[in-house]
C-alpha cells in the first residue's frame, strides 16, 4: 500500500525537477532530510523459552513474522569536497504483528509426558532504531534535481516483544490443556553494526527547501536475549525502505 505512493511521489518530483532548477544556485554545504516511509522487507524468526511447570520445563516456541513497518527518518549531510558528502541519518521503524505460539507442557502426574498446546500472542511490538553513517556522492542531472548515492555502516538497536510465558487452563485428567494467553516481554538488543546502501532524489523547490525521496537497503543481524531462555536468538534487522519528505539546504 505504501510503496506505490512512494514511487509515484519520486516520479512526480523528477517530473517537476526542471521547473525548479532555475531556483538552484551553488551547491549547499549542509543538507537536512526528514522523511516518512515504509520498510518493505519482512523479518521472520523464532524464539524458544522455558519455564518450570510440574517439576519439568515447559518449552514455549513462538514464530514471528514482521512485515511493512512504518519508518521515520531524519538526517543531515555535510559536503566535504565537490560531490562528496558525509552524513548521518537516524531511522526509526515500528510495527506490530501476531506470533504463533506452541508449547509442550509437562503433565502434572507423569514425567516425560508433555502435552501440546498452541495459540496466538497478539500485536507484538517491534522497533528498530538505526543510525546510518553515509558516504554520499551527489549527482546533479538538472539544476533543481540532485541524485545522491550513499553507502556506509549502520548501527542497529532493536526492541522486540518476545513471548516469555504462557498461561493455560488444566482440568482432570490433565491430558488436554487449553491455551489461555501468552505473556511477552520487550527486550532490547545490543547495538549491532550493519550496513546501508541507498539512493536519494531531491527536488529543490526553493532556495533552502525541497522534497526528496529515497530508497535504502540496510541490514544487520542482531542478538536478542529471550526471557526464560538461556540462549539468544539472532534476528535480521533492516531491509528495504522507501521514504519521502522534506529537504532543507544551507
Amino acid at each position: 500500500m505504501h510503496a506505490p505512493r512512494g514511487i509515484i511521489c519520486a516520479t512526480a518530483m523528477l517530473a517537476i525537477a526542471s521547473a525548479a532548477a532555475a531556483q538552484s544556485t551553488a551547491p549547499d554545504r549542509v543538507r537536512v532530510a526528514l522523511d516518512v516511509g515504509v520498510q518493505l522487507s519482512s523479518v521472520a524468526f523464532d524464539t524458544t523459552a522455558a519455564k518450570p511447570v510440574y517439576l519439568e520445563n515447559a518449552n514455549i516456541d513462538a514464530s514471528y513474522k514482521m512485515t511493512h513497518g512504518l519508518v521515520f527518518d531524519g538526517g543531515v549531510s555535510v559536503r566535504v569536497a565537490g560531490p562528496v558528502s558525509v552524513g548521518v541519518m537516524v531511522s526509526s521503524m515500528t510495527e506490530s504483528a501476531d506470533a504463533a505460539v506452541s508449547a509442550a507442557v509437562p503433565h502434572p502426574f507423569f514425567f516425560k509426558t508433555p502435552r501440546s498446546i498452541s495459540g496466538t500472542a497478539p500485536a507484538l511490538h517491534r522497533e528498530e532504531l538505526v543510525t546510518h553513517i553515509m558516504g554520499i556522492y551527489t549527482l546533479h542531472p538538472g539544476r533543481a534535481l540532485d541524485i545522491a548515492l550513499s553507502a556506509g555502516p549502520s548501527f542497529f538497536t532493536v526492541r522486540q516483544d518476545v513471548v516469555s510465558d504462557i498461561t493455560f487452563s488444566d482440568t482432570y485428567p490433565y491430558d488436554a490443556p487449553a491455551f489461555t494467553s501468552a505473556a511477552s516481554q520487550r527486550v532490547k538488543s545490543s547495538n549491532t553494526t550493519g550496513f546501508n546502501v541507498g539512493a536519494d532524489v531531491d527536488l529543490r523547490l526553493a532556495r533552502h527547501a525541497g522534497l526528496g525521496g529515497s530508497a535504502k537497503f540496510s541490514k544487520a543481524t542482531v542478538p536478542l536475549s529471550v526471557p526464560n531462555s538461556s540462549t539468544t536468538v539472532s534476528v535480521d534487522a533492516g531491509g528495504t525502505q522507501i521514504a519521502g519528505g522534506l529537504r532543507i539546504y544551507f
Partner: peptide, 8 residues
C-alpha cells in the same frame, strides 16, 4: 524400585 515419580 528407585524410579522417579511425581507426587501430587
Amino acid at each position: 524400585l528407585g524410579d522417579d515419580k511425581k507426587m501430587s
